[in-house]
Design a binder for these strands. Structure first.
Lengths: 201, 201
DNA sequence: GTCTATATTTCGATAGAC
DNA sequence: GTCTATCGAAATATAGAC
């Protein structure tokens, strides 16, 4: 299963089907310039085709964003399933560091998609309100909130959990501050940093 | 100095000058619906005036966003000044938890503005590219990156710093998970959570 | 300062030929 | 599957009266 998108990083990517190349270019431009400031025309020109060609592969601009969104969706679902599988609040609290570790790996493996999400929060929320998306797919964030809020976990633990998620995002996606070490070393440092939030006192 | 904006939370706020009321409504709508999906007309109607009236007070839609951005700008500047005032990398590392504490207070005091920033990252970056903004005001994030990257701080410390900033954002801005305690208690929990990232082993 | 127009542009989307 | 040509909608911004 290929949740990640091959990153040729060329100006006019030739690998894969046209549909896949559209998604690849869209991912780049949506992340760089933002979804709203990227026109269908921008994508088409970067790809060397016309707008009309895009509408053969996708029925709307929002559909392109939706497709990219769904590819990331499985990431959160796996974390949720693992969390939900644990019965009691106590077990959930104990298992969290391990789940977080898997989350770090997943985010790191899908950095481009996560960055797209991070930089286009409002555009993605607008999708949820208008598209059929809600019917079939339960919103991932709402689900996580219900799970954490509904747990018998003490508030102190829930705050730590939320903070740790934000820490992972910042640690893995913020560029320009720790470029003097290898990427693997950086990921490892993120792991230990967030793990320390759940150390015994 | 009023960096925060009075939040009447009414449908048609009457407090303050028209210019201030515009900013207040814009802040709400930009955060709720996103900057790009909020039209000048939306703001005007919510305010009970016409579009043309807005153009008397602001020369463009982007100018409204810019004004809101500048109000948050001072927040990061204060953290930067405090960080820059410390000479050596060692002193900077030791002082970080205290600086972080001030950062938490500042973010909490300006939650609405920070949320606006968080949800409209791409729109704000587009501002930087086009407006005069760059000339007068050095970009706050770039400055922070240079300070941290240029420091003699070890990478392990820099990663922790970046992670802690993300943790604060998530802990203070994510709603729906810890609503069963007072806001003050929640802020206190965020403080201890991130502080634990800088505990001695 | 606020209003009623209106100018101008850009974008998303479609029709139909090839 | 891709093209040319075009439609229609919506948004920003301006002109000028009050």
């Amino acid at each position: 299963m290929a949740t990640t998108i091959a990153s040729d990083s060329g100006s006019a990517p030739q690998g894969g089907s046209t549909r896949e190349r559209i998604l690849q270019v869209a991912l780049e431009l949506f992340t760089e310039q933002g979804y709203d400031k990227t026109s269908i025309r921008d994508i088409a020109e970067q790809l060397g085709v016309t707008k009309a060609a895009l509408y053969y592969h996708f029925k709307s601009k929002a559909d392109i964003l939706l497709e990219l969104h769904l590819r990331l969706h499985g990431l959160g679902e796996r974390l949720l399933d693992a969390l939900e599988a644990l019965p009691s609040g106590e077990a959930r609290a104990r298992a969290w560091p391990q789940l977080l570790d898997g989350f770090i790996t997943a985010v790191d493996d899908n950095r481009e998609l996560v960055a797209l999400h991070q930089r286009n929060q409002s555009a993605l929320e607008a999708l949820h309100d208008s598209e059929r998306h809600r019917a079939a797919n339960d919103d991932i964030e709402r689900q996580l909130r219900r799970l954490l809020a509904g747990s018998e976990l003490p508030p102190e633990m829930r705050v730590r959990m939320v903070c740790s998620l934000g820490a992972v995002m910042a640690g893995l996606l913020t560029d320009g501050i720790v470029d003097d070490i290898s990427h693997e070393a950086r990921v490892a440092l993120v792991r230990t940093s967030v793990a320390d939030m759940f150390r015994a006192p």
